[in-house]
Computed example of a mutant assay.
Amino acid sequence: LAAGQSVFATLAEHDVLVHHPYDSFEATVQRLLVEAADDPDVAAIKLTLYRAGGRSRIVDALARAVERGKEVFVFVELKARFDEERNIEWAHKLEQAGIRVVYGLVEIKTHAKTALIVRREQGALRRYVHIGTGNYNAATAEMYTDIGLLSADPALGADLHDLFNELSGSSRPPQAAFRRILVAPTSLLKRLIELVEREAEHARAAGSGRIRAKLNGLADSDLIVALYRASQAGVDVDLVVRGVCTLRPGVPGLSERIRVVSILGRFLEHARIYHFANGGDAEYYIGSADWRPRNLRRRVEVVTPVRDPACCRRLDAILEAELADPTAWELEPDGGYGRRPPEPGADGRGSQERLLDLASATA
């Protein structure tokens, strides 16, 4: 985001993909919300709050927005593990500031990372969105790798408008027929399986197919079965999974075309990216959901397609860099992990180090 231009002016021209901590959280996502709070043309700000952390400039900006007559709505998840007490404190502070606060849904966590800004422009209302993989927390944004999409796409704006209407007016998980976003626990798992099966159909028809995904965990049995079937149909499945993975790659007759790597480094890998080659018409998605039962079946999660060509190219580069990371750990068919052996004369830097060097060179 250019320092001398309004965030809204930039997003009116094109989407922006941010990759923390290589892109500053304060200069991108936090800047969007602070600018919205201070902009006299902004009418409303809405967001989900899962882990805000300690002192938060975003929360300060929301309080300032209310003082300036803006509608501010915050959905606070009180069941965020290890942060229950802190989130209760934040909810009370938000309410004391005059912000409308809604607490988590009954028996289900809201893990989505979404923000909606409504702005008056030329006699009409325009919506701006942030949909990401990480919390609205400047401290963890320096330690976790996360992805976020900033956009003025009308369809995404309409989807988040409907999402927040449901979160504020119902105790059930969102039931709306969304235009673009995929939402758990209602539609995300079904659509993911359809996308995997579509890739298998491409492989059967044309002899090739590819799925790439970056996740924190993979353990949903139905999705794993779909991936096994895709592998058997000829789809190459390349996965970056930081944590638990109950899929077994490289098993003859079952998962020979699947490989799984895990990256450990200075930062905690936290982003979620899905890519489906789709016969040359590639589709990219980012969002809050891992491929685990708790995310796909028992939480409110939001995943968005990414359509801007420059944003898609950046997601492709991230996936390729991590899959080729010379320091990665490879999951073996027996469930054990082995460190990739160094290649003589090759660049031995890991993907995190390379991305840091690139960020420094382009700063």
Rank of each mutant, 00 (worst) to 15 (best):
A2T: 05
A2D: 11
A9D: 15
P21E: 07
L32M: 15
D38R: 15
V42W: 06
A44F: 03
K46H: 13
G54I: 00
G54E: 13
A65V: 11
K70F: 06
V72F: 09
F73Y: 14
K79S: 13
A80V: 04
F82Y: 14
E85M: 06
H92R: 10
L94Q: 02
L94I: 04
L94R: 01
Q96L: 09
Y103N: 09
A115D: 10
I117W: 03
I117R: 02
V118W: 01
R120D: 12
R126K: 15
R127N: 12
A138G: 10
T140V: 15
A141E: 14
I147D: 11
I147W: 01
A152V: 00
F164L: 10
E166T: 07
A177C: 03
A177G: 05
I181D: 02
I181Q: 03
A184T: 12
A184N: 04
K190R: 15
R191L: 03
L195E: 13
V196D: 06
E199G: 06
E201I: 09
H202Q: 13
R204S: 09
A205T: 11
G209S: 05
G217L: 06
G217V: 02
D222V: 01
D222S: 12
V225R: 15
S231D: 03
D236T: 12
V241Q: 04
T246V: 08
V251E: 12
G253D: 10
R259V: 03
S262E: 10
R272Y: 04
A277W: 12
A277G: 00
A282L: 00
R307L: 12
C311P: 01
R314W: 04
I318A: 01
I318E: 02
L319P: 01
E322K: 11
E330V: 15
P333A: 04
G338Q: 12
R339E: 13
P342Q: 04
P344K: 08
G348S: 07
L358Y: 07
